[in-house]
Write a protein that binds this DNA or RNA. Sequence first.
DNA 1: AAGTTATTAAACACTTTGTTGGTTATTTAT
DNA 2: ATAAATAACCAACAAAGTGTTTAATAACTT
Lengths: 188, 188
Amino acid sequence: MEKDDLRIVKTKKALYNALINMMKEKTFEEIKVSDICNKALVNRTTFYAHFEDKYSLLSNLLDNLKKSFTSELEKNKYSTSKEYYIELIKIFLTHIEKERDTYLAIAINNRNSILTDMINDVIDNDVITKLKNDENLDATIPKDIISKFFIGAVINVGMYWLYNSDKYTKEEVINYLIELIPNEKTSK
Amino acid sequence: MEKDDLRIVKTKKALYNALINMMKEKTFEEIKVSDICNKALVNRTTFYAHFEDKYSLLSNLLDNLKKSFTSELEKNKYSTSKEYYIELIKIFLTHIEKERDTYLAIAINNRNSILTDMINDVIDNDVITKLKNDENLDATIPKDIISKFFIGAVINVGMYWLYNSDKYTKEEVINYLIELIPNEKTSK
DNA sequence: AAGTTATTAAACACTTTGTTGGTTATTTAT
DNA sequence: ATAAATAACCAACAAAGTGTTTAATAACTT
């Protein structure tokens, strides 16, 4: 076993944490590799043994986030589109609550669209097939548009909530979002 | 007059254009000041005579965009929230259509949240006061949440449309968005 | 057409990056 | 508990990019 070597696990974790904490105070671009290493108490040579550069460090961090989110999403087994969206909202908000520090770092650094891309990657196929089977939904609006609309709205509210966790509880935000998402045109 | 000196106008424009065109092919971080200058046929010393660094160049570019968008928005004199939103959507899509190159550069570089911030800056006060006077709107959902929801959704669809201008016309996208925005709870 | 000022060119110190070779310390597996 | 393996450390390095300065040249304004 190479990857489970405690030293590797320890240094990688230290580097991730250092990056997250610094991103809460500085722009990602202002952060130098040596800054990260100083904060993480890791030698710069060691950094380069594990990551190509700081971009690779950030991208690995986001990959981990994506994996964690994906695995949480797989529990969503609702089939109708409305129920599916509601469950997705709950899972997403719970996820960013759990990983608050990381998401704050991303939000402060204006990298929200990375999240948009990530969530698109994760749910797009899933959502589109779900929407296909949903008879209730208004057929005049293309599914890809609906998906973008929904994802953009939820992420933007989610990121806003990060800064205002004291203003609204998670449950409140979830309820607001559920009320706001486009209703099926059942009358049609 | 200093600022109207043709040489200044010309070099600044050349630098802006060079940046926009390079951002369509490269990451902003990969673009070096000397790259911009080479493409713009401007000496590097001249660059530093006008801008602190490349971040300042980008930020000035976005300021210009913001000014142009703001002045277009000022024509929106609708008072009810629904009408206001519809007009906002039209103005926004027309705006990104006009400035397609710049927005594409921003979108490709994952800097969409800069737009979110910009639009929030521009309309937030405006929208909130409009919503205050709107009796039809469901009072149980806070106005800031509605605003974030709406802005996130519209920007995400707008950015998606940039990549798919051949798939949907502007008018189609506008109509989809109008159908998707949260309806007033007139029944309440 | 004269005066002003932006642009250019070359050279500079400085910071950050990414790499290398040799040494020390930690972990794993026997 | 110890030996073998390998990760982390340290110092030094070349290369690339940044931002500034100086003096000469070119372009614009009135």
